[in-house]
Computed example of a mutant assay.
Amino acid sequence: MGVGVQAGEPRRDRFHKDCPGWELYRHVANRWGVLILSALDEGPLRFHAVRDQVGGISEKVLSQNLRDLVRDGLLHREVEPSTPPKVTYSLTPLGDQLTARVRVLLEWVGANFDEVLAARRHHDG
């Protein structure tokens, strides 16, 4: 058990599988989490607009990821009473804090992609 961890408390060690942060890591750093957060960085979007912006994601997978990110407090889900209901997603203040860091990662990828491609060619050649 880690320092300061009481019996029955979850471990708070990011390298341990029982750390409660692992679930959040999966939601944010999975294949789609970063792209969904990035899509919403420019403002609120309806479900289909998020789907269209995040190419290649199925509606089922998008729905699950959006539910997870709403549950984690990173996204706000607003349902407008209409037929059919209009659902809009936006970043919460917590989600905005995270997305600011995601933006730095995406900027790094954009700035260094040519170098990464050159490294891949060198490695594969």
Rank of each mutant, 00 (worst) to 15 (best):
A7H: 09
A7T: 15
E9A: 06
E9R: 11
R12W: 09
R14I: 11
R14H: 12
R14D: 06
K17W: 11
D18G: 03
C19N: 15
W22K: 11
E23R: 10
L24D: 04
Y25A: 03
A29I: 14
N30Q: 03
G33C: 02
G33M: 09
G33Q: 01
V34C: 00
V34T: 14
L35Y: 04
I36M: 05
I36N: 03
S38G: 00
S38D: 04
S38E: 10
S38V: 01
A39R: 01
L40V: 06
L40M: 08
G43R: 12
L45N: 03
V50K: 03
R51L: 08
Q53R: 11
S58V: 13
K60F: 07
L62T: 13
Q64E: 13
R67S: 10
R67D: 15
R67Y: 05
D68A: 10
V70I: 15
G73H: 13
L74A: 10
E80L: 09
E80V: 13
P81N: 09
P81M: 13
S82H: 13
T83Q: 14
V87N: 08
S90Y: 15
T92I: 15
T92M: 07
T92N: 05
L94H: 13
L94Y: 11
L98P: 06
V102W: 05
V102H: 06
V102P: 03
R103K: 14
V104N: 04
V104H: 05
V104W: 06
V104Y: 08
F113K: 09
E115Y: 07
L117W: 05
R120N: 00
D124K: 04
